[in-house]
C-alpha cells in the first residue's frame, strides 16, 4: 500500500501529541508500518507545533514534506493556513474553528487575520468543525484533541480499527469513557 500522510498541527499545549499517539497505536495494531515525528522542547511553549504520522506497507521518511500530506488536521484556525503548503493539492483539510491569539496579536503588533476559513475554503477541500464546542458539550474542553482524532479516523477510512479499545488502553481509566464519547462525536462531525 502506498504511504499515507496525516499532518496534525496546532498550538503547544492543545494535545496534538496524545491524539497522534493514539492514532499511531491504532495503525500499528492494524498491521501497518508506521512512523511518527514531532518536535519537543522550546516550541511546545505556546508555539506552533506539528505531529506527523505516516503509514503504509513500507514507510521511509518519518517527516511529511511540502505538498505531501493526504490530510491536514488543524487544532487551531490560523495554524491550518500556516501549514497548508504541506497539503497535497487534492488533499483534505479538517480545521477546528477555534482561535488562539499568538503573542504578536496579544502585544498589539499584529491583528488576528479575518477571513481565514474563507481563504481555506477557496483553495482546498475543507471541513470546519467546532471541536471546542463539542468537547465542552461533553463536559470537558480538554478532550477537543480526541474529537479531532475521531474526525481524522472517519476521513481516512480507518473505522475498522478498534479505537475504543486503543483509547481504553492508553488514557486514564477515569477519562476513558469521556474520551470514547469525544471520539465518536468527532466521527459524526465530518
Amino acid at each position: 500500500m502506498e504511504t499515507k500522510s496525516i499532518l496534525l498541527v496546532g498550538v503547544g499545549g492543545q494535545g496534538t501529541i496524545l491524539a497522534s499517539k493514539l492514532l499511531t497505536l491504532g495503525l500499528l495494531e492494524a498491521g501497518f508500518d508506521v512512523k511518527m515525528s514531532e518536535i519537543h522542547g522550546m516550541s511546545q511553549r505556546g508555539g506552533s507545533v506539528s505531529s506527523q504520522v505516516r503509514y503504509g506497507s513500507r514507510v521511509d521518511s518519518p517527516v511529511i514534506e511540502m505538498g505531501g500530506a493526504d490530510i491536514l488536521v488543524s487544532f487551531e484556525l490560523m495554524e491550518a493556513l500556516r501549514w497548508l503548503n504541506y497539503l497535497q493539492p487534492s488533499g483534505r483539510v479538517i480545521v477546528n474553528d477555534y482561535r488562539i491569539p499568538p503573542m504578536p496579536v496579544i502585544t498589539g503588533d499584529a491583528v488576528y487575520p479575518e477571513g481565514i476559513l474563507e481563504e481555506l475554503q477557496q483553495v482546498a477541500d475543507v471541513t470546519a468543525i467546532d471541536a471546542a464546542a463539542i468537547a465542552a458539550s461533553l463536559g470537558n474542553p480538554r478532550v477537543m484533541n480526541v474529537v479531532l482524532l475521531g474526525a481524522i479516523v472517519k476521513s481516512m477510512g480507518l473505522t475498522e480499527i478498534d479505537w475504543p479499545h486503543i483509547i481504553r488502553e492508553n488514557v486514564k481509566l477515569a477519562f476513558a469513557e469521556l474520551n470514547i464519547k469525544a471520539f465518536q462525536a468527532g466521527m459524526e462531525a465530518v
Partner: peptide, 27 residues
C-alpha cells in the same frame, strides 16, 4: 527536491499574508 530539481512537490497557492508568526511564549 528543491536542491535537486528547483521545486518541491506541487502545493496549493493561497494568501500567506494571513499568517501571523506564533513564537513560543512563557506559559
Amino acid at each position: 527536491r528543491r536542491a535537486l530539481y528547483g521545486e518541491t512537490l506541487p502545493t496549493l497557492s493561497f494568501d500567506e499574508s494571513k499568517v501571523v508568526p506564533r513564537p513560543p511564549t512563557l506559559c
